[in-house]
Simulated assay, not measured.
Amino acid sequence: MANYLLRRVILGLAVLVVAMLLLFLLIYAVPGDPATIALGPRASEAQKAFFREQMGLDDPLPVQALTFLWNLMHGDFGTDILSQRPVADLVFAALPKTILLAVVGVLWAAVIGVPLGIWAAMRPNTWTDWVIGIISTSVVALPAFLTAIYALILFAVQLSWFPAIGAGEPGNYGDQAHHLVLPAFAIGVAWVGYIARLVRVAMLETLAQPHVRTYRSFGVSDLRIALRFVLPIAVVPVISVLGVGMGNLLSGAVLVEVVFSRPGLGSMAYDAVISRNFPVLLGSVVVTTALYVVANFIADAAIAYLDPRLAEKG
């Protein structure tokens, strides 16, 4: 298992380096002059040239990319061209808000989706199974930003049950939790369907195995079989999908943060795109990519723990 995890770490680092280089090239291909944005349209050409020299923007693009990677390895994400603050300070101040939003969204989806999948698997081809299947398939098709908009209109504007924008008053955890409900709901709705369908399929496949029939022959109840012996195997594909789907989850968090004007990596990246603030955009995207790699590693480690046979094959 140690060799398996080591290979995953090396693969994750390689993915991170390649992704950062590609993102760097794509971001700097976007039209817009950072010097003009930072200094304003009335700045002279001499002032703009000095700014580009100070920021290293006049170097060839490969040199800028290598310099960016070198600085990144030393914890230097660059400097915000608008506020002149270190990008690392801005990014890591916003990071916990985005992680909290994504984790809460997935957790509540798992709390609902796993029992629904178990329930459907224990009653296959019944009206209960059909209803759960229809609901699960329907919510999977809902984009996070669309759910966020309708949730905002219904629950915040019309019913006034929840706040419409912001992340709550700092230090007031009750107010922050109140502000978190709608964004987390918008992110987790689609995952309820994914998780329920995956758990159902995996459990039905596992329930048909010979060892399950052996448990039944000894008089073990179906509920105990499902929870004790089948569910740990059935959640393996769920963990795998959550790890691979972390990119979709984070992209959903970006859009949801913009809809609810919620501070985080998503709204920071959006503002950076609008203002052509390339260092902040790079820092946000790099950290988001790193989160994706870390989430995949955690998913691989959890899968290897639950089913060591997969670690031997991988």
Rank of each mutant, 00 (worst) to 15 (best):
N71A: 07
D175Q: 12
H211A: 01
P237Q: 07
A208D: 13
A2M: 11
G283D: 06
T214D: 09
A93E: 15
V15Y: 09
I27D: 06
L154S: 13
M73Q: 12
L255K: 04
V63Y: 08
F229P: 00
L291P: 05
F77Y: 12
I81W: 01
P41A: 13
I233C: 05
H179S: 12
R224S: 15
Q54W: 03
V212T: 03
I233D: 10
D80Q: 02
A65G: 09
G12I: 06
A208S: 15
W130Q: 13
P279I: 01
N248A: 15
A110D: 04
V236T: 10
I132Y: 03
L255V: 15
G252K: 01
N296S: 07
P124G: 01
G12Q: 07
V236C: 07
V106L: 13
L231D: 13
F50E: 15
V256M: 03
A35N: 04
S267P: 01
W70L: 13
Y28S: 11
L101F: 11
T147Q: 00
P170Y: 08
T289Q: 00
V9S: 13
G12E: 10
S138M: 02
A29P: 03
V111Y: 03
P210T: 12
L154E: 07
K97G: 11
Q209Y: 00
A94V: 04
V235Y: 00
T128D: 10
Y4S: 09
S221I: 06
A177H: 06
A141F: 01
V91A: 01
F68D: 08
E45F: 12
G188S: 07
V9E: 10
H211M: 02
S138G: 03
P308C: 08
L182W: 06
A167Y: 12
L11T: 14
A19M: 11
L227Y: 15
G32N: 12
N248K: 11
A208C: 11
V192I: 15
L66H: 12
G75W: 00
R309W: 01
L69R: 12
S217H: 04
A109V: 03
M55R: 13
F278E: 00
W119D: 01
V103P: 02
L152R: 12
M73K: 07
P263G: 10
V114A: 05
G314C: 05
L291R: 07
V236R: 05
G56Q: 14
W191N: 14
V235F: 00
Y173I: 14
G283L: 04
S217W: 00
M55V: 03
V230F: 10
G174N: 07
V114E: 02
L207A: 11
S83P: 08
V192C: 11
L25P: 05
I165M: 08
P263F: 13
T98I: 12
A88Q: 15
P86N: 09
M246T: 15
G113M: 00
R52Q: 05
T214C: 08
M122W: 05
P124F: 00
F229H: 14
G133F: 00
L95I: 05
S261T: 11
R228I: 03
G219Q: 08
S83I: 04
F68C: 08
Y4H: 08
T288G: 10
H179W: 06
N248E: 15
G117H: 01
M122N: 09
Y292N: 13
L101Y: 10
I149Y: 08
L223H: 11
L142E: 08
V192Y: 06
P124N: 00
V259A: 01
L180I: 09
R213M: 13
G32I: 10
L250P: 05
V15K: 10
A2P: 01
L146K: 03
T289V: 02
